[in-house]
C-alpha cells in the first residue's frame, strides 16, 4: 500500500517537472520574472516598513528598564507556590511533582495533621525546591493535579553562595486551602 502511494507520488512529481520544462514558453519566462520581482518587492516593503516604523522595536534595554520590563506571560523564571491572604496554599503533598521532576530538584516532606473532624490527614511539612539544579522544564507544573505551583517571571537569581538557592516554597505556618483534595 505504502509503496504504491510513494510510487504514484514520484510519478506525479516527474510528470509535473516534465510538464514544466516542456512549457518553458516566453510567457512563462516573463511570468517568472514578474513573480520573482513581486515577491522581492513584498519582502522589501516589509523590511522597509520595519525600518521606518521605529516604535515596535523588540529590544529591551534590560538593566536600564528594570521597572518597566515586559516579559512574556509564560516566561519560566522559577517555581513558586502562591499563597492567599490567610496564608493558605493548594498543595496536598501528593508528590506528583517530585516524581515528575527529571533531576530531583523537588523534595516534599510530609506530616500528619488532625483536621476539624478529628481525622488524621497527610499534609506538607516542607516543600524543598533546588533552584540551583532546576532546568525550568515545567514538568512539575504540568503534573500538579491541584495547581499548587506555578512558574514565576522573576529571573534575577544570582547569589554568591549556592546554598541560598535551596528554597522552601511553603510559607511557615501555612495551611492547605479548604476544599482542595
Amino acid at each position: 500500500m505504502t509503496t504504491t502511494v510513494t510510487l504514484s507520488l514520484s510519478k506525479r512529481e516527474t510528470t509535473n517537472s516534465k510538464h514544466e520544462t516542456k512549457n518553458m514558453t516566453l510567457g512563462n519566462y516573463f511570468g517568472n520574472i514578474y513573480k520573482g520581482l513581486k515577491s522581492l518587492a513584498a519582502g522589501m516593503r516589509l523590511t522597509g516598513l520595519y525600518f521606518v516604523r521605529r516604535g515596535d522595536s523588540l529590544t529591551q534595554e534590560y538593566p536600564n528598564n528594570r521597572g518597566t520590563l515586559k516579559l512574556a506571560e509564560r516566561f519560566r523564571g522559577e517555581v513558586v507556590m502562591p499563597h492567599n491572604e490567610s496564608n493558605e496554599h493548594r498543595c496536598t503533598g501528593c508528590t506528583a511533582c517530585e516524581l515528575a521532576c527529571p533531576n530531583g530538584s523537588i523534595k516534599i516532606l510530609t506530616k500528619f495533621v488532625i483536621n476539624e473532624e478529628g481525622k488524621k490527614k497527610k499534609a506538607i511539612d516542607t516543600f524543598v525546591y533546588h533552584l540551583d539544579t532546576c532546568t525550568m522544564c515545567n514538568l512539575c507544573i504540568i503534573s500538579c493535579p491541584s495547581d499548587a505551583i506555578i512558574m514565576a517571571n522573576n529571573f534575577e537569581h544570582s547569589v554568591f553562595d549556592r546554598t541560598k538557592l535551596l528554597k522552601v516554597l511553603n510559607k511557615p505556618e501555612s495551611k492547605i486551602m479548604a476544599g482542595v483534595e
Binding site: 520595519y50 525600518f51 521605529r54 515596535d56 523588540l58 534595554e61
Partner: peptide
C-alpha cells in the same frame, strides 16, 4: 544600524 532597524532591534547604542 540599518540591520538592527530592519530586524526590529536597536543596534549598537
Amino acid at each position: 544600524k540599518v540591520a538592527a532597524y530592519m530586524q526590529l532591534r536597536l543596534g549598537p547604542n
